[in-house]
């Protein structure tokens, strides 16, 4: 399998930067970024990523609305979406599943946990870079 391409959609630039670091530098995946809902939708349509890591709370189009758009669009509806969320109660998990997300990861997160969970949700094999003893 070629290097998977994952789209990160988060309005917080620094979080975006850190998550990008995790995916690229730790997991070895290819990353595309978007800093708003609309930007994310555009990138998803244009670049057809293998997966999307989506922040929920964003100004303008929020993560939930974006997810509904993605699932409504035949081009993007099969792209697996993982939510990066602050509130991750049990009920929230159910509603995210109903909305079509394959999983949710709560912030803050440990970089290794993040990539392991994402790989797990997506069924990807993970070859962690720069392993430390």
């Amino acid at each position: 399998m070629s290097t998977p391409k994952i789209l990160i959609i988060d309005d917080e630039a620094l979080i975006q930067e850190v998550v990008q670091g995790c995916f690229e530098d730790l997991a070895g995946w290819s990353v595309i970024t978007a800093n708003s809902g609309q930007d994310g939708l555009d990138q998803a349509l244009a670049k057809k990523p293998d997966a999307i890591a989506l922040d929920i709370i964003m100004p303008g189009m929020d993560g939930i609305t974006l997810l509904q758009h993605l699932k409504a669009n035949p081009v993007t509806q099969d792209i697996p979406v993982i939510l990066l969320t602050i509130a991750t109660g049990f009920t929230d998990r159910i509603s995210y599943a109903e909305l079509g997300a394959i999983g949710a990861i709560s912030k803050p997160f440990d970089p290794i946990n993040l990539v392991e969970q994402v790989a797990d949700f997506l069924g990807w094999t993970l070859d962690l870079k720069e392993k430390c003893p």
């Binding site: 850190v18 602050i86 912030k107 803050p108 993040l114």
Partner: peptide, 28 residues
């Protein structure tokens, strides 16, 4: 909820960046 978001957002960046450093990803 807002406060929670506002507190967790910087924490997420701090935790992630420190995690990557700790992991030794950027040692080189």
């Amino acid at each position: 909820s807002i406060v929670s978001h506002e507190l967790r957002t910087p924490l997420t960046a701090i935790r992630g960046s420190l995690g990557l450093i700790l992991r030794g990803v950027y040692d080189k």
